[in-house]
């Protein structure tokens, strides 16, 4: 190896890129085909397995993780691991709220009343923050708000 810092890892042959590209293509077709079948939970599992395979191919070959310093692989896996931790621990809550008392596991009104947000609607708030001058406009929006309150109230 020369003193230059870049070519310390060998240049991959063209065929690697072409083959990986083709594999990704095939997997994409495969995942679409599988999704058209009715397999219950296996639909989700298969789709995720295929996605993970594709992602691994991209990371290992296109992103050179297979050939580079293993530290980068650790960094990348750490990202995935902590994301997993985040999702798993959050769902440890959201999926088990009804364990002791069933009523705690779900909202009181399952169907959201979309146009009945308490307080002032988002867009108007933004406008109000940028320029607090258009009082007339906000007043009417508040009035509209109260009308929709009456309409959608329980």
């Amino acid at each position: 190896m020369s003193s230059n810092g870049q070519s310390h890892h060998h240049i991959l042959p063209l065929s690697v890129y072409i083959n990986v590209g083709l594999a990704l293509l095939v997997l994409t077709v495969l995942t679409v085909v599988v999704a058209q079948m009715e397999l219950g939970v296996f639909n989700t599992i298969l789709a995720m397995v295929i996605a993970i395979t594709k992602a691994s191919l991209v990371a290992l070959f296109f992103m050179h993780l297979k050939y580079d310093n293993k530290l980068y692989l650790i960094v990348f896996l750490a990202a995935i691991a902590f994301l997993g931790l985040f999702i798993i621990l959050s769902m440890a809550d959201t999926e088990t709220r009804g364990d002791i008392y069933e009523f705690r596991g779900r909202p009181i009104n399952e169907d959201a009343v979309i146009y009945n947000r308490p307080g002032v609607a988002g867009i108007d708030t933004l406008a109000g923050e940028v320029a607090d001058t258009v009082t007339a406009a906000t007043d009417t929006s508040a009035a509209n708000q109260s009308e929709s309150d009456t309409a959608g109230g329980q």
Partner: peptide, 13 residues
């Protein structure tokens, strides 16, 4: 019973 129906100006709903 329905406070927001006729809101007096200058007050928040």
């Amino acid at each position: 019973l329905n406070p927001q129906a006729k809101l007096v100006a200058g007050y928040d709903p």
